[in-house]
Computed example of a mutant assay.
Amino acid sequence: MTGISLDDANLIVHGDNRDVLPRLPAGRFSMIYVDPPFNTGRAQVRRNQRNRRVEPEEADRRGFKGRTYASVLETLSRYDDSFEDYWGFLLPRLEAARELLADHGTLYLHLDYREVHYAKVMCDMVFGRDCFLNEIIWAYDYGARAKKRWPAKHDNILVYVKDRSRYLFDATEVDREPYMAPGLVTAEKAARGKLPTDVWWHTIVSPTGKEKTGYPTQKPLGLLRRMVAASSRPGDWCLDFFAGSGTLGAAARELDRRFVCIDANDQAIDVMRTRLPEARFLGPEND
């Protein structure tokens, strides 16, 4: 399997990300956004184990690039979905993401309440707890209204950096928000707005708006624009390997960054090729 070189052309890749990621050059991406399937099933499963890195002779499982792990007992209970399968699905992709990040790079992992706590354990293991930067809450107000619990109206975005002493965060490039109580600050501050916190109030993509592509899990451009602006510079490479509708690519293009978008879904590829027509395309026939 040949490697994928990065030139000045943006890239859309049609393929399984687990096969594609090892073909990308290590250390080239300033910002990686990962929006994996949220694993929303309901099989009742309980596991009391986690993984830790060990020497090959002690291992009972392998991860990305042959890294070896052992299962160790820990109080880690599951109540919704097959966690062990999800762990096996997500872990090697997070390991690959870390390899692909530049030393100043940042990972944004977008999940919901069902998996975020377990994904945090994974990321702590892969990146190190000291490289955890933020948990962003994306709050919105749309969809069904639960009557027997508090309605779930937010997603979680875990933010990890590759090197705590070298990561990029450019607050001057981030869009600013209006003050909730502008009368309590100076007129100058009110006009300028404030830097967003770790709670982002942003509407979903309107079902009838111009931004809508028809892809079912499309994320708002405003969310990705903010991440790209904060964690990369013009000309830097950004990566999304569950690219879906290609919103990361659209945000990167708007901000003069370069991008690689990967997806195995035929509908996603069709949407991205329409939305990002300038990007070079790499499909199975090009391998």
Rank of each mutant, 00 (worst) to 15 (best):
D270K: 15
S82G: 00
L248T: 14
D175H: 06
R23Q: 11
R192H: 11
E285M: 10
Y33W: 12
I204Q: 08
M31A: 10
K147M: 12
P37Y: 03
Y142I: 11
V185N: 06
L91N: 12
E58D: 15
E84K: 05
V228H: 00
E95G: 06
Y179M: 07
L221G: 04
D256G: 11
V116E: 05
P56E: 12
H110Q: 01
R280P: 07
I137N: 01
W201G: 05
Q49G: 10
G193L: 06
L282P: 00
L94V: 02
S231T: 02
K65H: 13
S5R: 13
A139C: 09
R166S: 11
D112N: 02
G246K: 06
G88T: 06
A250E: 11
S71R: 15
C238E: 08
G105E: 01
Q49P: 00
K147N: 13
Y167K: 03
L224N: 02
E99G: 05
P220N: 02
E115C: 09
W87C: 07
P220F: 05
S232N: 06
E58S: 13
A187P: 00
L11I: 13
V161Q: 04
V228E: 04
L109Y: 13
T213A: 07
L109F: 15
V20G: 04
L76A: 14
L168H: 09
I157A: 02
Y160R: 08
P56D: 12
V185G: 02
F169K: 11
A268P: 06
D256R: 14
W237E: 03
Y160Q: 07
H14G: 01
Q44R: 15
T75S: 13
K219M: 02
W87A: 05
I204C: 11
F242G: 05
V116I: 09
A171D: 13
A146G: 15
R67Y: 00
S232C: 06
L239E: 09
R225Y: 04
D163E: 14
R145L: 13
L101D: 03
M180L: 14
